[in-house]
Each structure stands twice: as C-alpha cells, then as structure tokens.
C-alpha cells in the first residue's frame, strides 16, 4: 500500500506550528516512514503534484493570497486540519480585527516607531502584484470546510503526533488533558 500523502502550509501564522511539528524529535524518522510529503515548506515543494490525503493548515486568512492557497488546499487534500490558534480563530494577527484597517496601515507605514519620519511621501504598499489585505483576519473554517482542529499556540508536539498517527492509522485520536491547550 502506498503511503498517505501530507501537505502543509503557513498562512497568516508565524511558523511556530511548523516548528512544533519538528518538536516531535526523533519521531520525525517514524513520520517519514509513515507518510510522504507533497507541497510543504518542509520539503520546499511549491505546487501540488498530486492529490493529497491530509492538508495541514497553520495560520488564518489575512489577505487574498491566504484565501487562494487555502482554497487550493481544499481542492487538493481529502482532509484538512486547522493547526493552532491562528488557523482556528485568527490568533494574534486577528488582534487587528478590532482596529480600523486604515489605522493599522498608518501605524505600520507612517506613524510606527520604525517608520515615523522615514516615509516623507507617505507611501503605502499598493502594487497589483501584492496580495490585498482582507477587511479582517478570518479563521480557516470561515473560508473553507475544515475537518479537524488541533488547538494550541503552538499545539503541543504530542498533540500533532497523536493526530497524525490517528489520521494515518484510522485509530481514535488521543486527546490527553495536558496536550489540549489554547496557549
């Protein structure tokens, strides 16, 4: 039997969830035995080359590119997993949801401590090559259907490991108290 194929991506996240995946330590060797990776920052495959079984999403959707990638994952993966608080509820990037977007941009490009006085023409990035910011940061499941959720900031390595093994073997997922956390 061929190995299940896994794809991963980081949308509006900090890569912490991916770091936590690596935190499974030497079990990473077992993981390579268990699954094959396709599109993922782990192996630097940029585009899907085949249909995948499991898509792991870190980060929520803060711009048009995040939405595009997420929809691409939904199309190319049988199962999608929201990994971490940002994918599940927007996380720290969503703290901007309570601030008008214009104010956010002004703070970043005009008035912030590192930009104040250094941007005399008041330029804000606005090129058609650049993804457009969404009005707010959205949890992934408010954009596409998500099948499973693994909370945490980042999710504990054991939680990710338990989930992957359960998904690959079809066994029930273990959720011990100490690994299901929102921080």
């Amino acid at each position: 039997m061929s190995k299940p194929i896994v794809a991963t991506t980081s949308l509006a996240g900090c890569f912490g969830c991916h770091m936590s995946l690596l935190d499974i330590d030497e079990r990473i060797l077992d993981l390579i035995e268990l699954v094959e990776f396709n599109k993922s920052p782990v192996d630097d495959i940029k585009e899907f080359t085949k249909m995948c079984d499991i898509g792991i999403i870190e980060g929520g959707c803060c711009n048009s590119e995040n939405v595009h990638v997420l929809k691409d994952f939904r199309k190319n993966c049988k199962i999608l997993v929201s990994l971490g608080e940002c994918a599940i509820m927007g996380g720290l990037p969503a703290m901007r949801n309570n601030i008008p977007i214009e104010e956010c941009l002004q703070e970043a490009y005009l008035n912030g401590p590192s930009t104040k006085g250094h941007n005399p023409d008041g330029i804000m990035p606005n090129d058609e090559e650049l993804p457009i910011l969404l009005n707010k940061v959205y949890p992934c499941h408010e954009v596409v259907k998500i099948d499973y959720y693994l909370p945490g900031c980042p999710p504990r390595a054991d939680l990710i490991w338990n989930a992957l093994v359960a998904l690959v073997t079809g066994d029930e997922m273990k959720l011990p108290y100490e690994v299901v956390k929102f921080d």
Binding site: S82, I88, M89, G90, A94, N97, N98, K136, P139, H141, E142, I146, Y148, Y149, L150, P151, V180
Partner: peptide, 9 residues
C-alpha cells in the same frame, strides 16, 4: 477544539 459559531470580533 473549536467553537461551532462564527466569531463576532
């Protein structure tokens, strides 16, 4: 694991 309702923000 996730609330079943949309976030109000």
């Amino acid at each position: 694991l996730v609330p079943r309702f949309p976030y109000a923000f």
